[in-house]
Amino acid sequence: MSESAPETVPAKKPAKAKKAAKPENSIPRGQPKSNRPWKTPKQKFSKIKKTVNRLSFEKKTALRDELRYIKERSKEIKDKRKEDAVQKHQRRVENAERRLANERRSEVVQVIKNPAKLKRMKKKQMRMIEKRDVSQVKVV
C-alpha cells in the first residue's frame, strides 16, 4: 500500500429526473364504453391551462362603446321594421273597409214589398237575395 493521499471521488450530482410520459399517452387505450374510439380522453377543466389576455382600459371602453352603438342601431332597425309592419296592416284593414263600403254603395237594390213573391221564387233566386238595412242603403 502506498502512502499517498486517498483519492477523492467527485460527488455525483443527483441525476435529473426525466419528465415522465403522460400516463394517458403511455397506456394503450382499450375500447371505450361508449364504443366511440375516435373520442379523446377528456381533461379536468381545472387542469387545462387558460391564457388570460387582459385588454387595456382604452380598448375595453372602445369595445363597450362599439357594442352599445351596435345594440342601439339594431334596436332602431327592429323598431322601424315593426312600425312598418303595423302601418302596412293598418293600411290593409282600411283598404278592406273602404272596398266593402264602396261595394255596398254601388249595389243596385230592389226592395221586395210583397212577401208572396218570396214564396214563388226558385231556390237559386232565393240564394241571390241578401238582407240589407234600408236606412243605410240608397234605394234606386
Rank of each mutant, 00 (worst) to 15 (best):
V137A: 14
K50D: 03
L55G: 10
A62P: 00
K131C: 09
K78G: 02
L67A: 14
M128K: 07
K124M: 10
K119Q: 08
K22M: 15
R99G: 10
R29Y: 08
A11C: 09
P23H: 02
L67K: 07
K47W: 10
E72D: 14
K78R: 11
K60M: 04
I129D: 00
L67C: 10
E3D: 15
E130L: 04
V139L: 04
S56I: 00
K71D: 06
Q31I: 15
L63T: 11
D65I: 02
V108T: 09
P14F: 04
P37H: 06
Q90F: 05
D79P: 00
L67Y: 15
N35I: 14
K19P: 00
A17V: 13
G30D: 15
K42A: 14
Q31M: 13
K60A: 05
M128H: 09
S74H: 12
A85E: 08
D84Q: 08
A20C: 15
M1W: 06
E83G: 03
E58Q: 13
A101Q: 09
E97W: 08
S46N: 02
E66G: 11
S56D: 12
A11I: 03
V140A: 05
Q90I: 01
P115Y: 10
T40D: 09
I112V: 14
K39P: 00
T8Q: 10
K119M: 05
A101T: 08
K16M: 15
K22F: 14
R54V: 04
P37D: 06
L55H: 06
R105V: 04
S4I: 12
K22W: 08
K82Q: 12
R36E: 15
A11F: 02
N95G: 04
V140D: 02
N114R: 06
R68H: 13
R127D: 09
Q110T: 07
Q125Y: 00
S106V: 12
D79L: 04
R104W: 00
D79C: 11
F45D: 06
K71R: 07
P115G: 12
M1F: 07
T40I: 05
I48N: 08
A11W: 00
L67R: 07
E107I: 08
M128Q: 10
Q110E: 05
T40A: 12
R105T: 10
K18S: 12
V86E: 06
A17H: 11
I77G: 03
R92Q: 13
P6E: 01
K122A: 07
A15S: 07
W38Q: 08
V108W: 01
K117T: 08
L55W: 01
D65H: 06
E72H: 07
D65N: 14
Y69L: 15
Q110M: 11
P23G: 01
A15R: 05
A116I: 01
R29N: 13
D84G: 01
L67P: 00
K80R: 08
R127K: 13
A62M: 10
P41D: 12
R73I: 15
P41S: 06
E7I: 05
I77E: 04
K39Y: 09
T40Y: 06
A96W: 04
V134C: 02
N53F: 09
E7K: 09
K44Y: 14
